[in-house]
């Protein structure tokens, strides 16, 4: 493997990692605060992608600028976050915070199954493809290989921006600090007067919106097809568990690790490509069950 191929593998890995991170970070955020592993996260991702592809198709067909795709993605993400995430948290999750973890997970699993069919009823089964945003930005040649600007530059930059914004939001804003406080110790937070219910709702909306945003960004690069949510959710599970549940920066590094592992596998041992994320997860969890960046929890007596 020469330097050129080495560099190429890194480029491909980074572009891929950016998308995975965007989805995984929402999942880990929700887990950190609500202690729920949200299976329906995959549905938010798929719905974000479907909504962007179908709305984008209409907008561009009407002759608007393809650069409108970017604000459109943000709008879709916020809408999915509030409309779907908000409703699900208010009407379902709220009722089950007292139940045990397995039941909570199953509730999100049920939501996932329902949303799978909702997608089919709304968008049908034909693949959607809407890449105007990607095409508008054009290509760039690196080391003799053509890349799209969108994947090589824009996606990683957006992922980085999301990471930084999230960090600032959590550390510098009041809402963010409230979220952190509840994550740290719910009982103590409630006793000093923090409205934990509001924090839960806010977190779930932000997490769902991030998944939808990931889907919206992905829709420009790939066919939006039935079943895309189920694949994404296990991958983000792997990222989140490897990083340590609730670890935001950790999720970024792990996504990068998995992205690079995958692209190097394509160059060196294509047969291992699909195994890479899970192998990494397994190896990490066997050595550090709390994940690469997780903090070991004291056992409850």
């Amino acid at each position: 493997m020469n330097t050129q191929l080495f560099a190429l593998a890194i480029f491909d890995g980074v572009a891929y990692a950016a998308l995975v991170f965007l989805v995984a970070v929402g999942l880990t955020l929700i887990f950190g605060v609500l202690q729920i592993l949200n299976v329906a996260h995959g549905s938010f991702y798929a719905i974000g992608a479907y909504a962007t592809a179908s709305l984008g198709g209409m907008v561009f067909a009407a002759g608007f600028s393809p650069y409108l795709a970017f604000p459109l993605m943000l709008i879709v993400a916020v809408l999915v976050g509030i409309a779907l995430g908000g409703l699900i948290e208010q009407f379902l999750l709220k009722r089950i915070y007292v139940k045990e973890g397995a039941l909570q997970l199953l509730v999100t699993f049920a939501v996932f199954m329902i949303l799978e069919d909702v997608q089919r009823l709304v968008w049908g089964v034909q693949p959607y493809f809407e890449s105007s945003a990607l095409q508008a930005l054009g290509n760039i040649k690196v080391l003799g290989i053509t890349y799209t600007v969108y994947q090589l530059i824009v996606l990683p930059c957006i992922a980085l921006a999301v990471l930084i914004c999230l960090r600032l939001f959590l550390r510098r804003t009041l809402s963010g600090k409230l979220i952190l406080a509840v994550t740290e110790d719910r009982e103590a937070a409630t006793s000093i007067g923090i409205d934990a219910d509001r924090v839960y709702l806010l977190t779930f909306i932000v997490g769902a919106a991030l998944a939808a945003f990931g889907g919206a960004l992905a829709s420009a690069t790939t066919s939006v097809v039935p079943g895309m949510g189920a694949d994404m959710i296990v991958l983000s599970f792997a990222v989140v568990a490897t990083a340590g549940l609730g670890q935001i920066e950790g999720a970024a590094l792990t996504a990068l690790l998995i992205g690079l592992g995958r692209s190097f596998a394509v160059y060196l041992m294509p047969e291992l490509q699909v195994l890479v994320p899970y192998l990494i997860m397994l190896l990490v969890l066997l050595v550090r069950p709390q994940g690469l960046f997780g903090i070991a929890q004291a056992r409850k007596i």
């Binding site: 379902l92 009722r95 089950i96 139940k99 039941l103 199953l106 509730v107 699993f109 049920a110 939501v111 996932f112 199954m113 329902i114 799978e116 069919d117 909702v118 089919r120 009823l121």
Partner: peptide, 17 residues
């Protein structure tokens, strides 16, 4: 046939809730 997953999902939710 179009909504069998939804039927199962609703069924599951009803049981848990």
């Amino acid at each position: 046939a179009d909504v069998w997953q939804m039927v199962l999902g609703v069924f599951l939710l009803a049981i848990i809730l």
